[in-house]
Simulated assay, not measured.
Amino acid sequence: MPKAKLDFTFCLTARCKEGKGKTDFWDTIIQGFVLEVRSTGGKTYYLRYFDQSGRQRQHKLGRYQDISFDQARKLAKRLRAEVVMGGDPAAKKAEKKAIPTYAALAAQHLEHARSYQKSPDNTQSVLQCHLLPRWGKLRLDEIKPQEVAKWLAEKHRDGLAHATVDKIRVIFNRSFELGRQWNIPGCDNNPVRLVPRRRYSNARERYLTTDEAQRLFKALDKSDNPQIKSIVSLLLLTGARKNELLKAEWRHVSLDRKAWLIPTSKTGKSRYVPISQDAIAIMEQLPRWDGCPWLIPNPDTRKPYNTIKRAWDTARCEAGLPDLRLHDLRHSAASFMINAGIDLYAVGRILGHADHQSTMRYSHLANDTLLAAVEAGAARLKGDWLTASR
């Protein structure tokens, strides 16, 4: 075990002993400070020491060509002091090395999402399009709250909707919460949890008027998609969600009972949707194919549509309704029912709301209906009073 006073000149000229694969030179000043010289010419600085259990440990300080002698000596001195105080630099380094990258955690997050989410595509899209490009290569302990907050703010400035940015934040936070539950190193301190959530109002009220509905149907008549008019009509007549209708099967529809069973919905529960006579008339005219179970499939593939975006965008722009979303048809269905005098509870049941809070967004429409009722009552009272006073 050759000993020497390690300095810049000695390390520069040190050579491996002839016939050896490597030679270790131990510093006479800093206990455990070692220069390893290999027969290939490579050199590396180490700190070697005994841990609390008496086992010899080795901590790599750096390769000779990567750090200067002064840097290696200062690092060795600091780590030696840590050892004297009962620390274990090698164990700490091993723990740090065991911390995975966010990409590894994201892969487990997505696998978990696929095991229970009805449609994990949204989670996958956020991970692949937003989170992985920015954070995928970083170890979990390298992701800091300040950087996350700054990045989310940049997303806002780039023009992303508040709801979209918040969804990114929620999924990012979920990754770390899952990692903590799974005892993954580096997830003890969740950097996303410390980023304050921005307050925003995502409420949007857009309802079709009768005139707008007529313009929309005229535009749908010109569409190249032979099913789009039936899809839009049934969305308006049933208040169903888009995916509920696109994945509807004939075996769940009973025209005789005027009922449509939706086996699984956004809330995770099944529900029956009553079918009006107008909806039945549309369903009776839908094309059907042998062996095809779907209510409104793509005629070319005989499978549910992956998207109807192009046909919808063309029709709404043709109708002069560029701000109308497909989901607004669901709101419009609720509006038409409430304005016809149907109470909020019944509307909530038809739409499949999990709680009354979701239906309360239409309460102002119900108030309009009630106001019309009291006005009618007042008018009747006024007429009777005038008749009696004559």
Rank of each mutant, 00 (worst) to 15 (best):
D51I: 01
D51M: 02
Q52H: 04
Q52N: 03
Q52L: 01
Q52E: 02
Q52P: 01
Q52M: 03
S53C: 03
S53R: 06
S53M: 04
S53N: 03
S53D: 04
G54H: 01
G54R: 01
G54V: 00
G54I: 00
G54T: 01
G54M: 01
G54Q: 00
G54K: 00
R55V: 02
R55P: 00
Q56E: 11
Q56A: 00
Q56S: 05
Q56V: 00
R57F: 02
R57A: 03
R57D: 06
R57K: 08
Q58R: 15
Q58A: 09
Q58N: 07
Q58K: 15
H59W: 12
H59L: 11
H59E: 11
H59T: 09
H59N: 09
H59C: 06
K60C: 14
K60D: 06
K60Y: 08
K60N: 10
L61D: 08
L61A: 11
L61P: 05
G62I: 11
G62Q: 09
G62F: 08
G62E: 15
G62N: 11
G62V: 10
G62A: 10
G62L: 08
R63A: 15
R63Q: 12
Y64N: 03
Y64A: 07
Y64Q: 08
Y64L: 02
Q65C: 03
Q65H: 06
Q65V: 09
D66H: 06
D66I: 04
I67M: 03
I67F: 02
I67W: 02
I67K: 03
S68G: 05
S68W: 04
S68P: 00
S68M: 01
S68T: 09
S68L: 04
S68D: 04
F69M: 02
F69G: 04
D70M: 08
D70W: 05
D70Q: 13
D70E: 13
D70S: 14
Q71G: 08
Q71T: 15
Q71S: 10
Q71I: 10
Q71V: 12
A72N: 08
A72I: 09
A72H: 10
R73V: 07
R73P: 11
R73G: 07
R73K: 14
K74S: 13
K74W: 08
K74R: 15
K74N: 14
K74L: 12
K74F: 11
K74H: 13
L75C: 10
L75R: 15
L75M: 14
A76C: 07
A76E: 10
A76G: 13
A76D: 10
K77S: 15
K77F: 10
K77I: 09
K77L: 13
R78N: 14
R78Q: 11
R78P: 03
R78S: 15
R78I: 05
R78K: 14
R78T: 13
R78Y: 06
R78D: 14
L79S: 10
L79T: 10
L79I: 08
L79Y: 08
R80V: 05
R80I: 06
R80K: 13
R80G: 12
R80C: 10
R80M: 05
A81F: 06
A81G: 09
A81R: 15
A81W: 05
A81T: 13
